[in-house]
C-alpha cells in the first residue's frame, strides 16, 4: 500500500483535481477509475505501474483490481509510447478502400511494424477499429486528430509535420 504522501508525490495537483472533479459525478468513488487513468494518460502519455498504484490508492482499490480494468480497455496504455501516436483504422470500409497499401507505406516510412515505436521515439504506430469516417476511407488518427482519404502522398505530408 502507498501512503497518502506518496500518492501526492506520484500524481500532480492538476491530475488529482481533475480526478476529484470527475469523481463528484458518481455515487461510488471507484467508478471514476477509468476516467482517472485517462486523465493521467493525458498528462503523461501512458499509465505506469507507479501511476496505477497511486490511482488505486487514491480510490481505495487494490492495484490488481485496477490493472485488471486497465488491461481490458485498449485506449489505456500500460507501456510508454512515442512523441506521436498514429492509429490506423483496420476495419472493413478502410480495408476495402486500400488499408493494406496504406499500412505497408506507413510501416516502410517509419521503419516499424504495426504496434511498434520508432527507435528515435518519434512515432508509435497502432491499429484501431473503425474511426467513423468510412465514407472518407482510408482513415487514421494522429495525436487525436482525424485524417482521411489517405494515400502515400498524404501520409508523407502528415508524417513530415510531426517532429
Amino acid at each position: 500500500m502507498l501512503s497518502p504522501e506518496v500518492v501526492t508525490e506520484l500524481l500532480s495537483v492538476e491530475e488529482r483535481e481533475e480526478i476529484e472533479a470527475e469523481a463528484a459525478h458518481y455515487p461510488v468513488r471507484r467508478a471514476v477509475c477509468i476516467d482517472a487513468m485517462l486523465i493521467v494518460q493525458r498528462h503523461r502519455g501512458w499509465v505506469s505501474d507507479e501511476s496505477l498504484g497511486a490511482i488505486a490508492e487514491l480510490l481505495g482499490m487494490s492495484t490488481a483490481d485496477l490493472d485488471g480494468i486497465a488491461t481490458f480497455y485498449n485506449l489505456i496504455r500500460r507501456r510508454p509510447v512515442g512523441r506521436h501516436v498514429a492509429m490506423l483504422c483496420d476495419s472493413v470500409s478502410c480495408w476495402i478502400m486500400g488499408y493494406n497499401r496504406v499500412r505497408d507505406h506507413l510501416c516502410k516510412q517509419l521503419g516499424v511494424p504495426m504496434g511498434g515505436t520508432t527507435a528515435d521515439n518519434r512515432f508509435t504506430l497502432l491499429p484501431i477499429v473503425c474511426l467513423g469516417a468510412c465514407d472518407r476511407a482510408p482513415a487514421m488518427m494522429i495525436d487525436g486528430e482525424l485524417y482521411t482519404d489517405l494515400d502515400e502522398q498524404r501520409i508523407n505530408t502528415l508524417l513530415e509535420r510531426c517532429e
Partner: peptide, 27 residues
C-alpha cells in the same frame, strides 16, 4: 448532465456492458 469519455472496446456499446464501464468495471 455529464460527458463520460470511454477507454475503448466495441462491447461497451452493448447497453449493459456500457453500464459496467460507467461504473468503472470491465465491460
Amino acid at each position: 448532465m455529464y460527458l463520460h469519455i470511454s477507454a475503448g472496446r466495441y462491447i461497451c456499446g452493448e447497453e449493459t456492458a456500457l453500464l459496467n464501464a460507467l461504473e468503472g468495471k470491465r465491460a
